[in-house]
Design a protein around this nucleic acid. Structure first.
Length: 819
RNA sequence: GCGGGCGUAGCCGAAUUGGUACAGGCGCACGGCUUAGGACCGUGUGGCGCAAGCCAUGGAGGUUCGAGUCCUCUCGCCCGCACCA
């Protein structure tokens, strides 16, 4: 047996060499090039929080592998990266350590960049975006002013969610499970003047256009649809007994005859006008109590519905009954009209409230007309039934009832059809320093004055005093606050709130597309070339927040004719998280595997392939150190197979047919291609392992290093390119390949080779497997049946019965049915 | 409560349209090579059975020539929303 000592696979020795070669070649330096189809590949950019671990890398490895794959497929690939660099952690660190946010962020970026590089993850760094850099945030300010101009940004006093730990307000989307999404603190309510973006103006389009997103995960679309929360119904006016009226929103106008009382939210503005003197003390006490409660406390009181009688009465416009008006916090001030008609017979919440406060419960929907007097021991909420105890409307179906009663209310001028959304406007003010200053000046004469374009950016001052009381340092920096009115020059004050960092991330993908244009936020022509993002990959935690905001931005810019598509992300992939020792891999849990460790112990390629192999990419996965060893073995073996020169020729042994190997190769090309397109990286990796196993079997059986073998080596190397790029480059070079592998075309399967001459046909008798028989491909049913009947196993299974019929799946299966 | 998803080997997991259940990896066993190895290579590896074969995809039914896949019920787990009128 011929044997020469082959150098062993030494990733540390080869990896840096190839990274340098890619950089020198300008890998991923993208230009707008009409000759090739474009492919915009994007991973969600991170907040630069310091050292990365392998949990973070799942996203980047998937993104990098896909970008390299698309490159080999002949696309003009844009594969950029950047930093969502504004945000609270850097500011909190500054308060504790005194290190200015800009300094710590820059340090963290340098560390992260080094780690990405170590893992062979490359980007179009010439298009790098850092949201906290002046050349980016001046355009965030510019866009804010654009929104203001369009009437899509406004300032309003509102009851808002306040996080006492972070000392800032939060948007509704940023309360997750009743607590601050960032720090987990229970928010309280504050009434403050705040800046909002009018995302509700786009509620319907944001909902409708989910249908366009056929390459988004269903669950993300469902989450967004639920968040937008469209309800169809009617607004109805109830006249008050004394004077005035109270408007309610209901999705069930058909149940109006069952409205036996009304409920208004404690914050409702009508209250001072209607509360009677004898109830005033009780009402005031109740309002005070609800104000003190945080959201989470309101949730925990789910089972006891508190409330207080206002002393006032309204008249039900349909039944003409006199009904009491109550105040209760189970009615929300900022949904619908902040008031409801309570129909305890057909709404479980109203039912519970009526029970507790001894209010009448009336049935107005029943399974049939004769059920009118059947008592209700629970709210009957179903839509299948007929109206009862409803005067002229008795006997109508629920659907007809909704239609007719709404029409009647419209005719009488006391109501109208309405669509209500759960979505609220996006609160973007943050009372913190490390963010984009809102470009607004308050003039004693002119009020709110936008900063003129030519004065942008409003610079975030570097020299500020970080206060331990958590107050915004900007408000205490006179050189920032004090300015002059752009209109009249009078001494004026600057807005000291900064923008929610989700504003920064709502348009960064447009900036990438444009390079670093100093004259505008982005260049329409270049954006038109690249957009939409063809593949967006990131975490599920942004299912609502970032992904909804970005969609909103895109639609606003589309309406302003600044872009030509109104959905930013054509395809979305949300990868699962990596766990280790039972917890999500994280710095705080101390269970992180660092890229440095991986590279030192195994090499970057083992880390990359393991992260792709670990499990279905959209699901969480458990990191297994032994599994990493398995992948390392796989790559070592490939090295030995391709670089090693052990020949499998065994004297006297029959030559092993190389067609088998060639077919396996082409099946692998076909499978890996299909799997990568479908983001099934785990099965793509197992297909590569199978090919390597087949090559091993071939050598083992005495196969020679002939053309078939050479082809297998060459194509396996190319198939490895996107996943184990350093190893693949080295193998490519040693195989005598031209140029860099990363610029080689992806292999194509040969259909004539895939077409087998012989196939294994499964033979069943009455649906049970009895034999497997080699038959020529394309065999027809009667021939297949004839061959099947010759099998002793089949004969025994038939046992002398008659074959009544047969089911034939060409080239796969024949089932002989005797029964 | 409403919405979405998932239950396959000792473990992670494969399985176009219903068509050979368990690919690949881990682990385990045995063997080889080694001074030695937790390295490397090879073989085997769902259960029962001497075998033919039978039983196996959370459980119970159903449709079908044929069900992990479709339908009904049921148990368990995960995720999202959660007093949204």
């Amino acid at each position: 047996m011929a044997k020469t000592v082959a150098p062993v696979y030494d990733p540390q020795a080869i990896e840096p060499k190839w990274r340098d070669a890619w950089k020198k070649a300008g890998l991923f330096r993208a230009r707008e090039d009409g000759n090739k189809p474009k492919f915009y590949n994007l991973v969600m950019f991170p907040y630069p929080s310091g050292p990365l671990h392998m949990g973070h890398f799942r996203n980047y490895v998937i993104g990098d592998a896909f970008a390299r794959y698309k490159l080999m497929r002949g696309f003009n690939v844009l594969n950029p990266f950047g930093w969502d660099a504004f945000g609270l952690p850097a500011e909190n660190a500054a308060i504790q350590s005194g290190i200015p946010p800009r300094v710590s962020i820059e340090g963290n970026i340098a560390i992260s960049k080094h780690e990405l590089d170590l893992m062979g993850v490359l980007y179009a760094w010439d298009r790098e975006v850092t949201t906290s850099n002046e050349d980016y945030y001046r355009w965030t300010q510019w866009l804010f002013l654009k929104f203001l101009e369009q009437g899509l940004a406004y300032k309003q006093k509102a009851w808002v969610n306040w996080c006492p730990k972070d000392n800032t307000v939060l948007a509704n989307e940023q309360i997750v499970n009743g607590v601050c999404w960032r720090c987990g603190t229970k928010p309280t309510k504050k009434e403050l003047e705040q800046w909002f973006f009018k995302i509700t103006a786009y509620a319907q389009r944001l909902l409708d256009d989910l249908n366009k997103l056929d390459r988004w995960p269903e669950r993300v679309k469902v989450m967004q649809a639920n968040w937008i929360g469209r309800s169809e119904g009617a607004d109805l006016d109830f006249f008050l007994e004394r004077e005035g009226k109270l408007r309610v929103f209901t999705t069930r106008p058909d149940t109006v005859f069952g409205a036996t009382f009304m409920v208004v939210a404690p914050e409702h503005e009508i209250l001072p006008k209607i509360v009677t003197p004898d109830q005033r003390a009780a009402v005031d006490a109740y309002i005070e109590r609800t104000k003190a409660e945080t959201e989470i406390e309101r949730l925990s009181t789910e089972h006891e519905k508190t409330g207080v009688f206002s002393g006032a009465y309204a008249i039900n416009p349909f039944s003409e009954e006199r009904i009491p008006i109550w105040i209760a916090d189970y009615v929300l001030a900022n949904y619908g009209t902040g008031a409801i008609m309570a129909v305890p017979g057909h709404d479980s919440r109203d039912f519970e409230f009526a029970r507790q406060h001894k209010l009448p419960i009336r049935r107005v929907i029943g399974p049939s007309l004769d059920a009118a007097d059947k008592p209700l021991d629970t709210a009957f909420e179903a839509y299948d039934g007929v109206l009862v105890n409803s005067g002229a409307f008795n006997g109508l179906s629920v659907k007809e009832g909704i239609e007719r009663i709404t029409a009647e209310a419209e005719r009488k001028g006391i109501g109208k059809r309405t669509i209500t959304y759960r979505l609220r406007d996006w609160l973007i003010s943050r009372q913190r320093y490390w963010g984009v200053p809102i470009p607004i000046i308050y003039c004693p004469d002119h009020g709110i004055v936008p900063v003129p374009d030519r004065q942008l950016p409003v610079r975030l001052p570097a020299e500020v005093e970080f206060r331990s009381d958590g107050q915004n340092p900007l408000a205490h920096t006179p050189s920032f606050v004090n300015t002059t009115c752009p209109k009249c020059g009078k001494p004026s004050r600057r807005e000291t709130d900064t923008m929610d960092t989700f504003v920064d991330s709502s348009w960064y993908f447009l900036r990438y597309a444009s390079g670093d244009d100093p004259s505008q936020p982005f260049d329409k022509k270049r954006v038109d070339y690249w957009m939409p993002v063809d593949q967006y990959t990131g975490g599920i935690e942004h299912a609502i927040l970032h992904l909804l905001y970005s969609r909103f931005f895109m639609k606003v810019l589309f309406d302003a004719k600044m872009v030509s598509v109104d959905e930013p992300f054509a395809a979305l992939f949300t990868q699962g998280m990596i766990h280790r020792n039972g917890y999500v891999m994280s710095k705080s849990k101390g269970n992180g595997i660092t890229p440095d460790y991986m590279v030192e112990k195994y090499g970057a390629d083992t880390g990359r392939v393991y992260e792709l192999f670990i499990g279905p990419p959209d699901q969480d996965a458990e990191w297994n150190d032994r599994g990493v060893d398995g992948v390392a073995r796989f790559l070592h073996r490939i090295w030995r197979q391709i670089v090693g020169e052990e020949d499998g020729v065994v004297p006297g042994m029959a030559r092993v047919p190389s067609e088998e190997l060639t077919r396996k190769l082409h099946e692998t090309i076909e499978k890996v291609t299909r799997d990568v397109e479908a983001f099934h990286f785990n099965t793509a990796m197992s297909a590569l392992m199978e090919l390597s196993n087949a090559m091993q079997d071939y050598l083992q059986a005495g196969g020679r290093r002939n053309d078939a073998w050479e082809a297998a080596c060459r194509d396996l190397t190319r198939l490895l390119g996107p996943f184990a790029p350093h190893l693949a480059e080295e193998l490519w070079q040693r195989l005598g390949g031209e140029g860099l592998l990363v610029y080689q075309p992806w292999p194509e399967p040969d259909p004539t080779i895939l077409r087998r001459a012989k196939v294994t046909v499964v033979v069943q008798v009455d649906g049970r497997l009895r034999d497997r028989i080699e038959m020529p491909a394309g065999i027809d049913q009667s021939d297949a049946q004839a061959r099947a009947l010759k099998s002793p196993n089949v004969e025994r299974a038939i046992g002398g019965r008659r074959v009544q019929r047969a089911v034939h799946v060409p080239d796969r299966l024949i089932n002989l049915v005797t029964g």
